[in-house]
Design a protein around this nucleic acid. Structure first.
Lengths: 163, 163
DNA sequence: GAATAGGTACTCGGATAATGCCTGTCCGAGTCTAGTGGG
DNA sequence: CCCACTAGACTCGGACAGGCATTATCCGAGTACCTATTC
């Protein structure tokens, strides 16, 4: 059980995009250089964010990525769903129905839900709900509170790095 | 992000062990046959449960596994921790501190916690808490409520399968 | 001098390898049982 | 008849391969910009 590290990258990229001018585009290369990340792989993650409608991309010179919505409208759950895909972490393989034990279930036509699966899904649901309640704007505000100079610094770095 | 399917197997095995006589041992082969699972691999998961103190194992003829504590004392979190290991699902790789961006953090001696990591950990914590509040006994009760004949049937099957 | 056409450089986008973890399997160590021989 | 010993079989336990998802990389499609040429 491990969350793709692309999720961490994606959230940080959303933050950085929220600090540069809203209409400015930032290339994947710049975003990667900021954290010493592999450019092409980060680009892949940004593509996923694009497909999810979190960022919009522009090709060609002066192209790059920018947030497609306001940070208040981007939840951590959105980002995770974009990177990780729609699958649940816990996948019920219905082992109840395999082997001799299955007869009991078969008699019921598999109507009864699996209590194990239910409990796991409930737990996963509270996790998702918590993540859905946190927006990029919340994280942004938290960072600005603990490190007030961060936004200006990030903005300056991305401005200066433009040759 | 995917939970090892051994977790599902382990919980079902704990349930079955809770239904046979408390002092009876059940071999990994029997538990595997009940769901048509690969015996050796299930054995591996049961070993993990053993190391975590959830089941106890006895070698040799008439050996096998049995619950090491009462079902009320075994939470789903215990089982998951036993199978998945102690690692968190979200692992902060501290990308903040890598590359040019790191200078800002370095100036602070990395004192400020990463807001992204904090949010992810909070979400994971509610997940863990939910799982820690569900015991095997709870699942057991839920199954017995929806399928009252299950316990007797399981018990009978494991008794009969003893040649 | 202005406009246009062509070339060039730059960026995203998806297709293509390499790596690591999860899944699956195997054989050895230990232990209980049962049978056998002796007292 | 009872006991001790030995051989056997059975089970867990950890060490050893295979498959798939994640990680990483590369090259092509498309676009904007710049330049040179022409009116």
């Amino acid at each position: 059980m491990k969350i793709n590290e692309g999720v961490e990258w994606a959230v940080h990229c959303c933050l950085n995009l929220s600090w540069v001018a809203p209409d400015r585009t930032v290339t994947a290369a710049k975003l990667a250089a900021f954290y010493n990340l592999p450019t092409a792989y980060l680009n892949k993650q940004l593509q996923a964010l694009g497909r999810a409608g979190i960022v919009s991309s522009i090709s060609g010179p002066r192209g790059g990525f920018q947030l497609a919505r306001r940070p208040e409208k981007i939840t951590l759950m959105d980002v995770i769903a974009a990177i990780e895909g729609p699958e649940q972490a816990f996948r019920c393989t219905a082992i109840r129905q395999r082997g001799p034990a299955g007869d009991l279930d078969a008699a019921d036509g598999y109507r009864k839900p699996c209590a194990v699966s239910q409990a796991m899904r409930t737990a996963e649901f509270v996790w998702r709900k918590e993540l859905a309640s946190r927006t990029v704007a919340d994280i942004k505000a938290a960072v600005e509170r603990s490190t007030p100079q961060a936004p200006a610094r990030v903005r300056r770095w991305f401005d200066n790095s433009r040759t």
